[in-house]
Structure formats: C-alpha cells, structure tokens
Write a protein that binds this DNA or RNA. Structure first.
Lengths: 186, 186
DNA sequence: CCGGTTTGTTTTAAGCTTCAAATATTCAGG
DNA sequence: CCTGAATATTTGAAGCTTAAAACAAACCGG
C-alpha cells in the first residue's frame, strides 16, 4: 500500500494552517472528494495486495503485468506494457526480469525491430494467472457487494466524467516544456 | 505513480483466459468499476506527485505526512501518523527521519510514555507546507473542474457507500488469524 | 546515403513500502 | 512485585518505483 492524504476515517475537516475548523473555503468539496476517492482505492488496493500475497505469494505489480498479457495472447513489447500499466519503462524491465526468472513469462526478440522484445505468458504463467483471476474477481465483487446495479452504473458514469476532466487538466499542463522565455510557440 | 490493472484508456473488455470478448460474466461490472476507480486515482495521484516534485522538489509521501501534522498542531506520535496515513510503522520511521533531517519536523520524547515520540512541524515546515497546500488545493479543483456541484455530491455519496462496503468486506475477512482447525470460534 | 531525431530498452541512484523480527516499555492480573 | 500480553518503535531484507542518463536501432528529410 502507501498513500496519501487519505484518512483511516474522516475527522472533521480542518484548516491546513491553523488546524481550526475550516471556513467554507474555495474548493473544500473537491478536496474532500479527492481524499475519499483515494481512501477507497487505497483500501481496496491494499486488501488485494494482502490477499494476493497470502493466497498466492505474488505481488500486485506482477499480477497486474500478467493480467495485461492475459488479454494479449500474442504478447506485448515492454513499451506497450509500460503504457498500459501506466508505469515507467525501467519498472517494467525489472518486473519482466523477475517473472521470466520465475517461469511465468517468456521473452523473445522481435522479428521486425531489433530494439524491442516480445513478452508473453508461459503455459504455467497462464494457468497461475487463471487461478488468481478467478478469486480476484470474487474479491472485487465482494468489496462492492453493498452497491446495487444502478449505484454501480452511477459510479461508473461519474468516475468516467472525473477521468475525462482529469485528463483534460493534465493535458493542459503539458506541451510547455518549462522554458519561459521563448517567442515562437503558443 | 505505480499501479495496477488500470488502463491508460479502456480497450474492449476481454476475458482473462482467452482474450476473447467477454461473455456477460458474473461480476464484470464490479471489475470494470474497480479498474476505472483505479485509473482515476492513479492519474490524479501521479500528476500531483509530478507537480510536487517539479514545483517544490518534495515527494508525495512527505507532503502527506506534513498534511497530517498540519491538522494536528500539538503533534502526533509515529503510531498515530501511521494509522492516519494508512501505511506501516516502519515506513513512517524513515519518512520522519528524512523530514527531521531536512528541518521540516521536530521530534521529542513523550513525557508520559518512554516508548513513544511526539513529532510536529517546525516553523519552516509549517510555512513550506502552507505554500504547497495552496497550490495543491488549486490542482485538485482543476482536476475535478468539469464536474458541477451536484455531480461532486453524487460522487461523494456513492464513494462513501463503496468505502463502507469495502470496509465491511475487509473486516469480515479478518478475525480468523489463518488457523483452519479450531472448534471455538464462529 | 547522411545526419538528426525519435523510439525501445536498460541502467543507476534515490527513495518508498511492506513484512517480519528484534527491542524497549507499559499494562494487567494474580 | 512478577509475569505475560500488549504497545511503540526500529531494523533489515526484499521488492517496487521513478527520473535521468546512456545506448542501440529505426526513421526521416534532404
């Protein structure tokens, strides 16, 4: 696990500087929303991590990587893996190395591009993942077990909107590589 | 950043084993919801992490720890910090060590319990955090900028329900410390 | 075809994170 | 008071993660 401003449980919202009860600040609602979102994903992620270790002696990053390969039977390059997992290239290098070592993954040179390597699940890797995926899906269903179908749909839709909004905000911040004194770009 | 089954963008949902389009499986909706929740928090967290580094040369865990102390001006013990941050004790030990080293935190022995130590922000730490918190709040507001007030409220409520549901599921899994042959417990 | 840019990967250094074991201290009964 | 259980913290090993630097190979425009 790790992570952030999330609270084990929400105490009254306090002002950062004084610790006093916060006056109706500018964006308190958004801040509270972020903390709650973070609490949810941290709790779920931590429990998945714990159960994967306990039941299968596997780490979450390795499970994630295998999950990506499970839906790409033809294999993926390291770059494709890092994009899909939203982690750095160097990170994937190490994960793949350990999973090849443990026999879950195979790795071969790409036929068309001598720079890249194709990675895929071995038969053992595929079978190990299948077993984990079955339980994993049941865990998730249990975590959201108190929500009915319409609530799940509602969450999906609102999170979809939040995702699009965040993507917009993040993109807007890129494209200006940190120079501040140039004349020839918007 | 890090993290999980989240996708850079949702491809068609595929079956784990075959990679074929997934038949209406038992709990596909819950799984998709989890992936989307994870994508949202991963995107936001990663961007916050990036901006904190870029603007203030500080890591997210350090910011989080300072945020906890900012709302507890009297100081906290290491255990209290680890509970509130939902991370391990050993993790806090290291973070505090580095933040004391950098002058942001003070640390003194507890008067009543010789085992524990009280940690608090120094004046410099408090001022540094104040500056970061101002921008941080604006970033969050921007990330959720495309959601109106009722959508934010709706998300808060649904995430609150998801949080309670997860807590219920996680609690139900505890209390049986791994023995499987006992007669005297439910 | 050449030279500059982009892309795929690895490496390194630093830091984060967990779990489990080890210490030290306090607490609760008897 | 003594002993065993609980609490607060630290340490160590292993693994995850990133950013940045370094390469190698591919691509592209002239």
């Amino acid at each position: 696990m790790s992570r952030n401003l999330a609270q084990a449980d929400e105490p009254p919202v306090l002002d950062y500087e004084t610790g006093a009860a916060m006056a109706p600040a500018e964006h308190a609602a958004e801040l509270r929303l972020w903390l709650r979102l973070l609490t949810c994903s941290t709790m779920i992620e931590g429990e998945i991590r714990r159960r994967l270790r306990e039941r299968f002696d596997v780490t979450l990053p390795r499970f994630d990587l295998m999950a990506q390969l499970a839906r790409a039977p033809q294999g993926l390059t390291l770059s494709e893996l890092s994009q899909r997992m939203m982690v750095s290239n160097g990170n994937v290098t190490g994960l793949v190395e350990r999973l090849v070592e443990s026999g879950h993954l195979s790795r071969r040179k790409s036929a068309h591009d001598r720079r890249s390597h194709l990675v895929a699940l071995t038969p053992q890797g595929r079978e190990a993942f299948r077993a984990m995926a079955v339980e994993h899906e049941a865990w998730i269903a249990d975590f959201f077990g108190d929500l009915d179908a319409s609530e799940i749909d509602g969450l999906m839709a609102l999170l979809g909107k939040a995702k699009a909004s965040t993507r917009r905000a993040v993109s807007a911040g890129i494209a200006r590589p940190e120079e501040e004194d140039r004349e020839d770009n918007p």
